[in-house]
Amino acid sequence: MTNTLILKMIPTITIAIFIFFGFKNPSIKTSSYKCMIQMMNYSGEGAYISISLLNPEGVYEKTLFVQGDDDEWYSDITEWWKFHGKVRADIDAITGATIGGGERTVSIIEIDDDKINAGYKIRFESAVEDQAYYKDDVEFKLTSASVNSKVEGHGFVRYVRMMPQ
């Protein structure tokens, strides 16, 4: 008897869980940032670049943007893929085209305000077919100063510029 009762309650419990945790806390504000990635003058295919949010422990928390819309190459961005490959969050709305050597691209990324000045980091990983993968092409702490600055890259990215919109 008790068994069937628990079974019957499963849908109710599920709905309850969704009500509690499924929606964002509306009290946390989100801001948009204009983000420009300027590439080095390398030759070869267009680069795949993932922009991710890391928590203070350095663990992936969220994918902010992906340059490159063919998911068969996503595994080339090794570290990010370990995170995204498992979660497979829907990133359709935050993907753009790959960026070729010497090109630049401007995208709008959204970051929750409580992640700024809280030890969170933003990471730009880059990978080019047949060439190389840079785990931390660009990586910096999110502070109110850094979200309005220019940061040099180590790999395919020459620099990244961000500014609040």
Partner: peptide
């Protein structure tokens, strides 16, 4: 054109 739309989305 690469633009940021009125909905604040970057599109090409």
């Amino acid at each position: 054109a690469s633009v940021i739309t009125k909905e604040n989305k970057s599109e090409t």
